[in-house]
């Protein structure tokens, strides 16, 4: 039971971080379908930092350096979206898809080349970070508290405040609702959209490293992040683009994901003999049904996905 709570919380942390990332980008008016790819890049950055830092480094330094590297990787990678979608008015769905493909391919090529350069016989795509992983975990009885859980909560509160209580956040959201109107009162729509995309890169990259350190201590990069970026998009939509509801949705989705891992250890669930795939499918099915009932008056930013052109009316 403790394990179920622990898994739920850590998966919910991943999902809420990445979903908040999507939330910032979409509120500024850019659909970020490349979250999956941004997660992969953040995971790559974080994993490289963790595997390079000596195990004797103080835990605080490990945590900070890992987070910073993941964030930097995510932000740098998200510029690909900003550049194409904001400056060149490219199709955002297409660019997102390309970014997802590129992230997996590039990280695989990079990690393999790195492994081979160290040992010519090593053709794996795996990065191991077992030595520094304990820095993130504090054992409280049988419960493994992960610092990332705290970071996810901080990100949630910060996102709420930034979006609803600051001038920046309100302006950002205006650019996703009616960019022409925002422009007419002197807001630089391009700058605001860039801000939205870069913040989504930051949170997406962070989510990536949280995901790959959640259960394991090494990662094979040829599998990407197994659809978590897309699941986070579902969380964002399910949460109607609002931080508070995103937190609830992340907990629900995280709970089902956790169930699929630990249900065999819970006797009455195990006795029902439901295959783990059912638990994995659950979040997708629920969100599809909920979407079918709520999309008519959707809370989606009105101008999302439409490139902003100063000249158009």
């Amino acid at each position: 039971m403790l394990l179920l709570i622990q898994y739920t919380l850590i998966f919910a942390s991943v999902l809420s971080l990445v979903a908040l990332g999507g939330c910032f980008s979409e509120h500024s008016g850019v659909i970020n379908l490349g979250l999956e790819g941004i997660m992969v890049m953040g995971a790559l950055g974080g994993a490289l930092a963790m595997s390079r830092l000596p195990a004797t480094t103080s835990p605080f330094v490990i945590v900070v350096v890992t987070i910073l590297t993941a964030v930097v990787f995510g932000v740098v990678y998200s510029t690909l979206l900003g550049f194409a979608a904001i400056n060149f008015k490219a199709d955002q769905t297409l660019i997102g898809t390309a970014m997802n493909m590129l992230a997996t391919a590039a990280s695989t090529v990079f990690v393999r080349a790195m492994n081979t350069s160290v040992n010519p016989n090593n053709v794996s795509t795996e990065v191991s970070y077992i030595a520094t992983k304990p820095a993130f975990i504090v054992k409280i009885g049988g419960f493994e508290f992960n610092w990332f859980m705290l970071i996810a909560v901080i990100a949630l509160v910060a996102s709420y405040i930034v979006l609803y209580k600051t001038r920046f956040g309100l302006r950002l959201m205006a650019c996703g609702e009616n960019p022409q109107a925002a422009d007419s009162v002197g807001i630089n729509v391009y700058k605001m959209r860039w801000a939205g995309v870069l913040i989504s890169g930051m949170l997406g990259g962070l989510g990536g490293i949280v995901y790959i350190t959640a259960g394991v201590s090494s990662w094979k990069f040829d599998v990407g992040v197994a659809g978590y970026g897309f699941l986070a998009l579902a969380v964002m939509i399910f949460g109607q683009w609002k931080p508070t509801k995103i937190a609830m949705a992340a907990l629900l989705f995280g709970f089902f994901r956790a169930l699929s891992y630990v249900y065999t250890g819970i006797s009455w669930l195990a006795s029902m003999n439901i295959p783990s795939t059912v638990y994995i499918m659950m979040p997708y099915i629920i969100s599809l049904i909920v979407l079918a009932f709520t999309s008519k008056n959707s809370k989606a930013p009105k101008a999302e996905g439409i490139p902003y052109d100063k000249g158009s009316r």
């Binding site: 490219a90 660019i95 390309a98 493909m101 391919a105 695989t108 393999r112």
Partner: peptide, 21 residues
């Protein structure tokens, strides 16, 4: 790594986004 082809494909589709421009 054989994934170099995937890398090339991905870059091709990314640059296709600039077709209109």
């Amino acid at each position: 790594p054989s994934q170099i082809s995937d890398l090339i494909s991905a870059i091709i589709i990314y640059t296709c986004g600039f077709a209109a421009f």
